[in-house]
Write a protein that binds this DNA or RNA. Structure first.
Lengths: 146, 146
DNA sequence: GGCATATAGTTAGTTAAACAACTATTTCAA
DNA sequence: TTGAAATAGTTGTTTAACTAACTATATGCC
């Protein structure tokens, strides 16, 4: 590793390569093994709605760090699966509020345990302090580039 | 934030959402502004070939944390752009060695500066020690789930 | 009030990712 | 030495990402 440039390249590889896939894909496999047929991207949208139901698509964009077309299509697919429903806002007719269905509430109970299990497996040997530093670095990177 | 479960969910969002896109997309924009018409995924493959030319597709899989079909298609597209060339290995006829072309060497000089610039912008306010911790956490997460 | 501008969401087109199933070649052991 | 298992790479299918261009509604300034 001759110079600093190389090290930065490695960081890039990790951030773009490892992190984005490892945890999500492991979780997706657990879903599949249990016969739960949603993608990890769909789950990440539901995750935020389980925290707070009735978010707008724009709010889902912010929460999940996705752009508007991505959320449009994810909500399309979640609606096809009868897991959410678009409800036009009464205050502002441009806005769709995304509401959970009963089916998705059942899904929450089934999947949250798997998500915790996966995270536990992922962070073996990592201290709470290290996780905090890691989160704060990624947040600053995101803010710097926003 | 009532409990530990919620905090872990946030970490998940960061790792899968923020990190994978922010730096790469910023770099991609710089490429486009300079009239350089490759994707960030294609660039990440070239990056590893610039470090060592003539890697096999399998070695590119390992280096970039992608699966085999992904590398097959990225190499397809890089070949169409005349940036790399598949050369069958003489020792083992199952293996394709991926070699850079003259065009891609020019591209290296043009893009490496932009990559460094982007990383510099990304890590403003982050110490070297924090970066090391962040890398090591992501490495352990990856290894834990491998 | 009316027009420019901003905001929310959709559509179209290209690239990339994941998985499964496949072919070709090599390795290794009975 | 031959046949099973492992390895390298490809193809098909679905989902998701990004950009750009678009429609519809709301805001705000003159």
């Amino acid at each position: 590793m001759p110079n600093n440039q190389f090290k930065r390249g490695e960081l890039y590889s990790f951030i773009t390569g490892v992190a984005s896939t490892a945890i999500g894909r492991r979780l997706q496999k657990k879903f599949k093994q249990q016969g739960i047929d949603i993608t990890i991207e769909q789950w990440s949208v539901l995750y935020h709605l389980w925290k707070q139901d009735g978010l707008s698509q724009q709010e889902l964009c912010t929460a999940t760090f996705r752009d508007k077309p991505s959320i449009t299509r994810l909500v399309d697919n979640l609606e096809k699966l009868k897991l959410v429903k678009r409800v036009p806002s009464k205050e502002d007719r441009r806005i769709n509020l995304i509401h959970l269905t009963d089916t998705s509430t059942k899904l929450r109970d089934e999947t949250m345990g798997m998500a915790n299990e996966t995270l536990n497996e992922a962070i073996v040997g990592v201290t709470a302090q290290e996780i905090e530093i890691c989160k704060s670095v990624l947040q600053r990177v995101y803010d710097n580039l926003k």
